[in-house]
Simulated assay, not measured.
Amino acid sequence: MKAIVYKKYGTPEVLKLNEVIKPMPHKNEILLKIAATAVNSGDIRLRKADPFSIRLIFGLIKPKVNILGSVFSGVIESVGEDVIKFKVGDLVFGHTDMGFGAYAEYKCLPEKSSIALKPANISHKESAVIPFGGVTALYFIRKAMIRPGQKVIVIGASGAVGIAAVQLAKEFGANVTGVCSTKNIALVKSIGADNVIDYTMDDFTMNGETYDVIFDTVKAISLSRSLKVLNKDGIVILSAAGISEMLQGIWISLTSTKKVITGIISHKAEDIIFLKELIESDKLKPVIDKTYPLEKMSEAHVYVEKGHKKGNVAIEIQ
């Protein structure tokens, strides 16, 4: 089978289209023929080993995991003898968690992975871009216990996590303000934001407004600036936090009435099913900026790494 393989950390050029051995499912696994995947910020960080701490988990000198890609949509080609939830021919989508491997034509996954039947009303490439931003936003929104009537501001509202965060916070009943650049104002309004702030024209920390929850999806501003416009007992969510932000967050949470939420997300099949139901009820919409074929993966990485994509970048696998 064809797969995008990388054997050393570095620039997008380390990603090579190779022939690799097609996997075979174990008793409790499904074999998925992948129709589409996506390029996300997590793939970029892992390819570059940035921050350096990534090397402590995924390989100090060279990567232990040689095929990236954490999201997928496709069709089940075969199943192990102990699989009961899925059958051959099922159209599914989901998240590989830390297993990666979706930059390939085939992938084996345990039946109990974060997998669900594909939403009936969208395509494979649209389904593939949902789990990364959707799972991330859902995890932090639930952890913050966002509830009806709260004022929530989403920084980076036009990115993969931001687009999901705006829509999910609205679903949970919040009044949502999105922060983005001028060219993305219409997009953020279209996904349901009650208010939109153009960061090139207005500094939301200086306009007199305060918020119950500040969701920074892109590590765009300092914690000290966020805290100035956070209500008493408010919460800052840092989904892209580094170690220094995590340590600052722990200190703030311990020494004040305000709370900072960071950390590694966790998820399960029920979360993918929840997102599927929202999509099918037209409450969560995928946003795709560009689509590339598998063999153009390095080009897709170059584009995503520039940091200006609207929503998601999809990869179609022929």
Score class of each variant (00 low, 15 high):
residue 78 S to P: 00
residue 286 P to F: 01
residue 235 I to S: 04
residue 176 V to Q: 05
residue 211 Y to C: 08
residue 15 L to R: 05
residue 59 G to R: 00
residue 315 I to D: 08
residue 51 P to R: 08
residue 100 F to P: 06
residue 182 T to K: 14
residue 46 L to S: 05
residue 191 I to M: 00
residue 12 P to H: 08
residue 174 A to Y: 06
residue 226 S to R: 10
residue 21 I to P: 07
residue 56 L to H: 03
residue 233 D to V: 12
residue 287 V to N: 05
residue 189 K to A: 05
residue 173 G to S: 12
residue 3 A to R: 03
residue 317 I to R: 03
residue 92 V to D: 07
residue 318 Q to A: 13
residue 191 I to C: 00
residue 184 N to M: 04
residue 209 E to Q: 15
residue 232 K to W: 12
residue 304 V to D: 12
residue 195 N to P: 00
residue 218 V to I: 15
residue 93 F to R: 04
residue 55 R to F: 01
residue 51 P to V: 06
residue 93 F to Y: 15
residue 54 I to F: 12
residue 9 Y to R: 02
residue 258 K to Y: 04
residue 2 K to Q: 09
residue 168 L to F: 01
residue 123 S to F: 01
residue 67 I to R: 03
residue 181 S to Q: 13
residue 91 L to S: 13
residue 37 T to Q: 10
residue 294 L to K: 06
residue 85 K to P: 03
residue 125 K to D: 14
residue 76 I to T: 05
residue 57 I to R: 14
residue 117 L to A: 02
residue 231 N to G: 10
residue 109 L to K: 12
residue 286 P to Y: 06
residue 161 V to K: 01
residue 133 G to T: 04
residue 99 G to W: 06
residue 316 E to Q: 07
residue 287 V to W: 04
residue 22 K to I: 02
residue 152 V to I: 13
residue 101 G to T: 03
residue 88 V to T: 11
residue 280 E to S: 00
residue 293 P to S: 12
residue 308 H to D: 14
residue 41 S to N: 15
residue 165 A to F: 10
residue 298 S to K: 14
residue 185 I to E: 11
residue 249 G to S: 07
residue 215 F to Y: 15
residue 30 I to V: 14
residue 63 P to M: 02
residue 101 G to H: 04
residue 19 E to M: 02
residue 83 V to A: 05
residue 201 M to I: 11
residue 84 I to Q: 10
residue 28 N to D: 15
residue 170 K to E: 02
residue 88 V to K: 14
residue 308 H to F: 15
residue 141 I to M: 01
residue 219 K to L: 13
residue 157 A to F: 10
residue 23 P to D: 10
residue 301 H to P: 13
residue 198 D to C: 08
residue 218 V to E: 11
residue 298 S to I: 03
residue 195 N to F: 10
residue 160 A to I: 10
residue 27 K to W: 04
residue 230 L to W: 09
residue 57 I to V: 13
residue 88 V to Y: 00
residue 275 L to V: 03
residue 135 V to K: 06
residue 8 K to A: 02
residue 150 Q to A: 10
residue 119 P to A: 07
residue 206 M to H: 14
residue 62 K to Y: 03
residue 228 K to T: 12
residue 256 S to R: 06
residue 40 N to S: 15
residue 49 A to T: 01
residue 2 K to M: 02
residue 12 P to W: 09
